[in-house]
């Protein structure tokens, strides 16, 4: 093997790497916040059997969970313009991430809500909380805590999945990698570095989200 590694050739493009990392994180953060919010709404509709929304969410969840993310993204970016819905690559990427995570988190959060012991709801009722107050203060926080590790994993999966947004020219981290290695022809070094960045992002997001769960939902120090 006579290959001579040249990592400095990658670091010449640190700006592009940082910009790509930042956009990947931004896309993930926006998608996670709105996607999980959508998941909470979907989970409530499903768990409380609010017709007709429960059926709509059931169809939506099955549709998204049984099709590839790349196809969902292409459908939004290339397909929707045919019926007059125009979006730039970032709008399409953000929408695709929200829709994708919304479906998975609907199912995850629903499991948490349905695992609420009956006694918790009775205790809230006996304290004269109304239905909405009971949900907001008694049902939802423990439900989210219970499924939080699963939600963290799903957000990490979504973050890694945003790499396919490079295919519609959204200039996130994978797009930056493709760009850099097309300039310096250092595919090994470039993808090695980018792989390392994704790995660290995944670990970091998981840690951050576990902290958020503990402090914000459980209010524990």
């Amino acid at each position: 093997m006579s290959y001579v590694f040249d990592f400095p050739a990658v670091f010449e493009h640190t700006d592009a790497l940082l910009a790509g990392t930042g956009r990947t994180l931004a896309l993930t953060a926006i998608g996670a916040v709105i996607g999980i919010a959508l998941g909470i709404v979907g989970a409530v509709c499903r768990a409380w059997r609010l017709a007709p929304f429960d059926r709509l969410f059931a169809v939506y969840v099955e549709l998204i969970r049984n099709t590839p993310f790349l196809v969902q993204l292409f459908f939004i970016f290339f397909g929707l313009p045919a019926i007059g819905v125009q979006m730039n690559e970032w709008q399409a990427a953000i929408l695709a991430v929200i829709i994708n995570l919304g479906a998975y988190s609907t199912e995850i959060i629903r499991a948490g809500i349905e695992a609420t012991p009956k006694g918790q709801i009775e205790a809230a009722q006996s304290l004269a909380l109304n239905r909405l107050q009971t949900f907001r203060h008694v049902v939802l926080p423990p439900a989210l805590l219970k499924v939080w590790p699963a939600l963290c994993s799903q957000v990490v999966i979504v973050m890694l999945g945003t790499s396919v947004c490079s295919q519609i020219a959204a200039e996130e981290l994978t797009f930056a990698a493709n760009f850099i290695q097309s300039r310096n022809f250092r595919a090994f070094e470039t993808y090695f570095i980018v792989t390392a960045i994704y790995f660290l992002l995944a670990i970091g997001i998981r840690q951050l989200m576990m902290q958020i769960g503990r402090r914000l939902i459980a209010r524990r120090p």
Binding site: P117, G119, A124, S126, P142
Partner: peptide, 20 residues
């Protein structure tokens, strides 16, 4: 039943404290 429930407190066999 909320007006009634403000006048009646209840303690349960399984405590039912809110765990979070």
């Amino acid at each position: 039943l909320r007006a009634l429930r403000q006048k009646v407190g209840m303690v349960f066999q399984q405590f039912n404290l809110f765990p979070h």
